[in-house]
């Protein structure tokens, strides 16, 4: 597998405020990275740095062999970085189908394929974005990102606040995306137990710095460290 993404000594934040410091890691094509940490440690800021929505103060950011540190957000998306934000941000007054086609890009992910993995969206394709449940909005946000045919999909807490049955449905979809190997996935979640089984690698953040970078399986087998970094009971099967 060839290297898709490489960060070297990245320092980033918003304006003068530094949130991420001295961040270095790499991700190969088809790999899934679990990005873990407590609230406020900089997980979302790291994703925002990758998509170009945060200020990069120092370091190198290489995507598909190209330095994208100075590349604008829209160009990064066109190069193949898809982002599913925590807020979902579906367009409330557009229909499901309009939400999906608004940014469609040629590639293996078509409207048909998105409907195949999210049959609920096809059932509700004429509904407006604001007429969907939280789970459906999350599916729509993921489907919209897939319609960009990304090489790297950034998922920011996709399971947050959803009913267990929806969480399971989304986990199955994410698992199939990872197993398919067509794209790399960076998955941010507070509940490590949900995503470590899906991930190849894991990165744990504390105060904007890396405290663990390595195989996801290794981390899964170290409940004490998980507990210390992520909080009590996090390694257990806590329902989101």
């Amino acid at each position: 597998m060839s290297e898709l993404l490489k960060l070297t000594g990245v320092r980033s934040g918003y304006g003068d405020a530094v949130v991420i410091d001295d961040m270095s890691f790499s991700l190969d094509e088809g790999e899934c990275l679990a990005l873990l940490g407590r609230n406020g440690v900089g997980k979302t800021t790291l994703l925002a740095t990758l998509i170009g929505a945060a200020d990069l103060h120092a370091g190198e950011l290489v995507f598909r062999g190209r330095d994208i540190a100075r590349v604008r957000s829209q160009r990064r998306a066109q190069l193949g970085i898809g982002w599913v934000p925590q807020e979902r941000d579906v367009f409330p007054s557009l229909t499901v189908e309009e939400n999906l086609t608004v940014v469609a890009v040629d590639g293996p992910w078509t409207l048909r394929r998105v409907y195949d993995i999210f049959p609920r969206l096809e059932e509700r394709r004429q509904n407006l974005g604001n007429q969907l449940s939280g789970g459906e909005q999350q599916m729509l946000s993921m489907g919209r990102a897939l319609m960009l045919n990304p090489k790297l999909l950034l998922l920011d807490e996709p399971l947050e606040g959803l009913a267990p049955i929806i969480v399971q449905e989304l986990l199955n979809v994410i698992r199939s995306l990872v197993a398919d190997g067509g794209m790399s996935v960076v998955l941010v979640e507070q509940h490590a137990n949900k995503i470590l089984p899906l991930a190849h690698r894991a990165l744990v953040l504390e105060r904007g710095r890396t405290v663990y970078w390595g195989a996801a399986g290794t981390l899964r087998d170290e409940p004490e460290r998980l507990e210390r970094w992520l909080g009590v009971r996090n390694h257990q099967d806590v329902r989101p």
Binding site: I51, G52, A53, R72, S73, Q74, R76, A77, Q78, W83, P85, D89, F91, P92, S93, L94, E98, T101, V102, V103, A104, V105, R144, A145, L148
Partner: peptide, 21 residues
Amino acid sequence: PFGLALAGIRLNPQRMPALGV
């Protein structure tokens, strides 16, 4: 698609660059 992109920009201008628009 152009018109839908305009609607997207109207509804959420900050989000659209990250969607490649």
